[in-house]
């Protein structure tokens, strides 16, 4: 998804400076259209969420967020993120390393497979785990005999979340590492570094902003996943409700202000996420520029590392 963005940006990271001069009318018409469309589609929903959350006052909103069930939902969501994101970061690095640093057969098939969770309906993502681990599923009887709970408990929620967030880091890193090539790593190896040293001292500094970017997108999606989690959750209050499911529950209990308060919390996190993303993109461009202008090469990095 974001992959070709970075890809294209990588190739031509130079910020443009010249401003075109089209006729003023066309210009303002276009700007107004863009602002109106984004205002209608993006800003209005945001305003509605915060307005509805605070309609009944700060106290109601605060009470909704500090209710034991809300706190349990926050904890479960945090747990889910804490499992899904690190695992997918490691997977993303491993997959990108394998795909970009070596000549791999069926490369586009592999990339397509990695992409698959992007376009699979989240409902299907939830359903396949029910089919596999549910009481009527393939492994259900065995799991039940060994008293292992997956579906309708936090492992199922974590699995479904891992599934839908699988591609984010990998798809961010693959084009980035492909563009960077292997020269730095090869140089480091020929200078006598082992694999891990090469990775931590050479590759990681090169990809750190892309990695951070992918991690942020992955976190955002893990926080907000609804469809897949809804199928495997069981909706037990205070136990298997994530934040988005808690919003739905409150909504169905006619506690609209509370529902929108929790929604507001999620919106706040989403806003932080995209601001962080913006920041990282800015840093990425800067570091790419530096890289392009003969920034730290493998040998200089190693030298630095050696002199530390």
């Amino acid at each position: 998804m974001a992959a070709i963005v970075t890809n294209a940006k990588l190739a031509h990271a130079a910020p443009r400076t010249a401003v075109r001069h089209s006729s003023a009318i066309v210009r303002w018409l276009l700007v107004l259209t863009a602002v109106a469309f984004l205002g209608l589609m993006l800003i209005l929903p945001l305003v509605i969420v915060f307005y509805s959350a605070l309609e009944k006052g700060w106290q109601t909103a605060w009470a909704a967020l500090t209710h034991p069930d809300a706190l349990a939902a926050i904890r479960l969501t945090a747990l889910t993120v804490a499992i899904a994101v690190p695992v997918n970061v490691i997977f993303g690095i491993a997959a990108a390393w394998a795909i970009t640093k070596f000549r791999v057969r069926c490369k586009s098939l592999l990339i397509t497979l990695i992409d698959l969770p992007f376009s699979i309906s989240p409902v299907i993502a939830g359903m396949i785990f029910v089919l596999l681990f549910g009481a009527q599923g393939l492994l259900g009887p065995w799991l039940s005999a060994h008293d292992i709970k997956i579906i309708f408990a936090w492992p199922g929620i974590a699995l479904a979340t891992m599934f839908v967030t699988l591609p984010f880091v990998a798809r961010e890193l693959i084009p980035l590492m492909q563009a960077q090539g292997c020269d730095d790593e090869e140089a480091a190896i020929s200078l006598g570094a082992n694999g891990w040293q090469t990775f931590f001292r050479v590759t990681l500094p090169n990809i750190k902003w892309g990695l951070a970017y992918g991690t942020i997108l992955c976190t955002a999606r893990a926080l907000g996943e609804f469809g897949a989690v809804s199928v495997v959750s069981g909706h037990i209050r205070g136990e298997t409700n994530t934040l988005p499911l808690h919003v739905e529950i409150l909504y169905n209990e006619y506690q609209f202000a509370a529902a929108f308060s929790v929604a507001g919390l999620l919106v706040g996190i989403a806003l932080l996420t995209i601001i962080g993303r913006s920041f990282i993109e800015w840093r990425m461009q800067k570091s790419l520029l530096r890289h392009a202008n003969g920034g730290p090469t493998a040998s200089s990095t190693l030298e630095q590392a050696g002199s530390e």
Binding site: V130, F133, G134, A135, Q136, G137, G140, S144, K149, I151, F152, G234, H235, I236, R237, G238, E239, I249, N252
Partner: peptide, 20 residues
Amino acid sequence: VRQSHAGAGKQARAVIDGLE
């Protein structure tokens, strides 16, 4: 006592699928 609420069909399905 923990509670779980949703449409009845959905709940029955969840119990059959292993919601304890």
